[in-house]
């Protein structure tokens, strides 16, 4: 009777070690999976550029024309379209931006954060640089008269890993 009891105990002890080993492996694997899935880089460049563009087209403190002190979205006051105004409006942006305004055979170009904008030659490498170029149909107010034009906005931003 005593012998059988000792045999059972030694057998249970013998099984305990492989069981602990397997529990350990499972624990490490689950921890690794959770740990890996929790780390992530979120690329918000598109949202940032969207917000900046909305500031340009809707903010009354940027380049919009005001009619009776009311800003009119989408109509640019040509007198406000200068580097100083745009720089104040988009201050501390991490984007390099080039604005090209074409209206009535006239062209006006403004560059912000030139050093970043110059990286646009690397736009082919989408892992390193975020680039967004688009032409917008806008109206220009010049000395009270409204003219149609195209505002080209070229945006470049170095991705987080590249900074």
């Amino acid at each position: 009777m005593h012998k059988r009891g000792s045999f059972d105990t030694s057998m249970e002890l013998g099984l305990l070690f492989p069981r602990l080993f397997i529990i350990g492996i499972v624990f490490i694997a689950v921890t690794m999976i959770i740990d890996t899935s929790l780390k992530m880089n979120t690329d918000v460049s598109e949202i940032e550029s969207y917000t900046l563009k909305n500031r340009i087209f809707y903010s009354q403190s940027c380049i919009l024309w005001k009619e009776h002190n009311r800003p009119i979205p989408g109509i640019i006051d040509i007198e406000k379209f200068n580097e100083q105004n745009l720089d104040t409006c988009l201050k501390n942006t991490l984007f390099g931006i080039k604005f090209t305004l074409n209206y009535e055979n006239k062209t006006k170009e403004i560059e912000l954060n030139k050093r970043i904008y110059q990286q646009q030659i690397f736009c082919f490498d989408k892992d390193q640089v975020y680039c967004e170029n688009k032409d917008y149909y806008i109206l220009v107010n010049e000395k009270g008269s409204i003219k149609d034009g195209i505002l080209r906005i070229e945006m470049v931003r170095l991705k987080r890993d590249t900074l």
């Binding site: 780390k39 992530m40 880089n41 979120t42 690329d43 918000v44 598109e46």
Partner: peptide, 16 residues
């Protein structure tokens, strides 16, 4: 397991 995530703007309606 990719560490990179991208936020995409829903384009069904556009303010632009």
């Amino acid at each position: 397991f990719s560490e990179d995530r991208k936020i995409i703007i829903e384009k069904s309606q556009s303010s632009e």
